[in-house]
């Protein structure tokens, strides 16, 4: 956060700044990804294997396709997958977390058991299995991500709801004659909504990375889709002949986006945590 020191920003301001910058980048990437037509990445054998230049910022590949355009389209697809996956995952966590915390002991033990079950299997393994079960491709990977990434957030929400429910002021509220529904809306929701937002932000980079990893292994999106994972796995073959730009730029872009989400999620988490809130 060198920049924020120079500008003399506090944590809230720098987080806000990072949020704005990131959303601009993400919107731009997603939009251009959608607006690009296939011509941009049509093969042009005259400029095969070109190193980065002003014509082709990220160079071209062995078919003469512009790597910059491919990267943008890949990122756009990855972000889409990540976003849908993360939101799906978060929805599952919210539903299960709230059920566990409010619907009695049986529901709680079932949900807890499910959480433990999913956490005991490595993400990638269950992700691959689920993606296969849904027939692979875009649908498979989105379902795979949504169904594998919920347990940790569900656990946070469950314990958060339970903790808030037992606090004195919630009990006082009952004695003030307030209904359960009113208490859920006015007391409990405001406490867990920030947790959920942070949860989604922190889920997102995981989702993207896992999507890229599965696709890289050839088990995710199909090869004709311009996903980052596919670009990376294809470029592996050309690294040994010195075409570093094929993997370098797409990789770096992916890394930057993932890191920024991670950073913002972390900052937000600190800001909503009362112990750190005023730093």
């Amino acid at each position: 956060m060198q920049l924020s020191k120079q500008l003399n920003l506090n944590k809230r301001q720098s987080t806000l700044l990072a949020c704005i910058v990131l959303s601009i980048i993400v919107c731009a990437v997603v939009l251009t990804g959608f607006l690009y037509d296939e011509d941009r990445i049509a093969s042009n054998l005259e400029v095969r294997n070109a190193a980065p230049s002003f014509d082709h910022f990220f160079g071209t590949d062995w078919l003469g396709r512009d790597m910059f355009s491919r990267t943008i389209m890949g990122l756009s697809l990855s972000i889409g997958v990540g976003l849908v996956g993360a939101i799906g995952s978060a929805s599952i966590s919210i539903i299960l977390g709230v059920i566990a915390a409010t619907m009695g002991k049986v529901a709680d033990s079932i949900v807890t058991w499910l959480i433990d079950l999913f956490l005991s299997v490595p993400h990638l393994v269950s992700l691959i299995l689920i993606a296969f079960a849904f027939g692979g491709g875009f649908k498979g990977i989105v379902f795979g991500i949504a169904l594998t990434h919920w347990p940790s957030l569900a656990r946070v929400i469950r314990s958060e709801v339970m903790q808030v429910r037992s606090l004195d002021f919630v009990q006082v509220s009952r004695k003030m004659g307030k209904s359960r529904w009113w208490i859920a809306k006015e007391h409990i929701m405001p406490h867990i909504v920030p947790q959920i937002i942070v949860g989604i932000l922190l889920l997102f980079p995981h989702a993207i990375l896992h999507e890229a990893a599965v696709t890289f292994l050839g088990l995710g999106l199909s090869p004709h889709e311009p996903a980052i994972g596919i670009i990376l796995s294809e470029s592996m073959r050309y690294l040994s002949v010195g075409m570093w730009w094929l993997a370098f730029f797409p990789g770096i872009c992916l890394l930057i986006i993932v890191r920024m989400f991670d950073k913002i999620g972390d900052n937000l988490r600190m800001l909503i945590d009362p112990h750190h809130a005023h730093r």
Partner: peptide, 19 residues
């Protein structure tokens, strides 16, 4: 299920208010 005619005031007010 309505305003309780017997009200309790706790020792620690910090916990009895929604932050």
């Amino acid at each position: 299920n309505r305003y309780h005619p017997i009200q309790l005031v706790f020792q620690h007010p910090e916990k009895a208010v929604n932050p």
